[in-house]
Amino acid sequence: MTRTISSDPLPLALPDPTHSFWARIAHEIADAIGRGVYAPGDRLPSEQHLATQYGVNRHTVRRSLATLGQLGLVRSTQGSGTYVEEFAVDLVLRKRTRYRQSLAQAGVRGGMRVLATSHEKADAEVAKALRLPVGKPVLHLVVLGDGGGQPLHVSDRYFPLPRFEGLDAYLQETGSITQSFDRFGITDYTRRQSRISARMPAAEVASHLQQPAGRPTLHVTSVNIDMNGEPIEYASAWFAGDRVTLTVDHGHDL
């Protein structure tokens, strides 16, 4: 089965600061951002200023800033300068993860929109997650999640058929997975697992998220189960790393 969107693994980490001057400068600027010396939205000193400060040429500084940009820490605007990215939304992953509820707790409004829908045969990955035989029919949705008027994530979501026939129409109507499940008599469900990694986005993912293709995303795969322990959804989602912080809360169900 051909996936609609995909990506390649990438370790989200700064280079070894002992490796080179540009790596050391990248570390020092990242540390300054982490300590609040440069707040979200602040303009960093100019390349020439930083070059003078560190005693290097502008090309070295430019490479340092490019690395920080790829990691989602800063953004460069031609003719204006380099700015610290704003980490606007903190989404909490819990046993009962609800997208709209997480947005509301972050003080942001948003929902989900169906970009594409299809009936497919479960490949090995999807079948394992949903505890189905390989080749069994599933509903495959490509979904865009927004918050505060910005795209926050795009995801491939799979639901067993025929149990969830028509869920795409309900999701398009309500903008909520939870409300859509309610139409099928599922009033409560929990998350069995979430796996988080950093990945470079495919071109289509970057386009949906309105971010540069060279900027990493946070990739989350998850499985939701009903109250009988039956898998009801497998999702593979890419979150915009410069707009989302993911917090895993092990202490609460709600």
Rank of each mutant, 00 (worst) to 15 (best):
A213M: 10
A39I: 11
R191H: 08
Y189V: 07
G166H: 13
A198Q: 13
L10Y: 10
R243T: 08
A235C: 13
D168M: 01
A127N: 02
E120D: 14
L132T: 00
E85H: 14
T18S: 13
G185D: 05
L152A: 01
D8I: 15
L139G: 08
Q78P: 12
R24F: 08
K121I: 04
P216E: 04
L144H: 14
T245W: 09
R24L: 09
R3Y: 12
D146E: 14
R163A: 08
G241Q: 08
Y54Q: 04
A127V: 01
L254Q: 10
Q211Y: 05
V143S: 01
V84G: 00
A240D: 13
L10M: 07
I232N: 00
D42L: 08
D242K: 06
K136T: 14
R183G: 03
Q105R: 14
G241A: 11
T97I: 11
R58L: 06
H119A: 04
Y189F: 15
S102P: 06
T247R: 13
R62V: 04
V114K: 01
W238D: 02
T77R: 09
P45R: 03
Y99G: 00
N57W: 02
R199C: 13
T221G: 14
I232D: 00
K95M: 11
E233G: 02
R100G: 10
T97C: 09
T67Q: 15
R62A: 11
A237R: 05
G251Y: 08
A213R: 15
G107L: 02
V89L: 05
T52C: 01
G148H: 02
L152V: 05
G147C: 05
W22A: 12
R191W: 04
A88D: 15
R157W: 07
T217P: 04
H208D: 05
S180G: 11
G111V: 03
T82H: 05
G81Q: 03
S222L: 10
R191Y: 03
T178Y: 10
A129Y: 01
E165R: 07
Q211E: 15
D42K: 07
D249C: 02
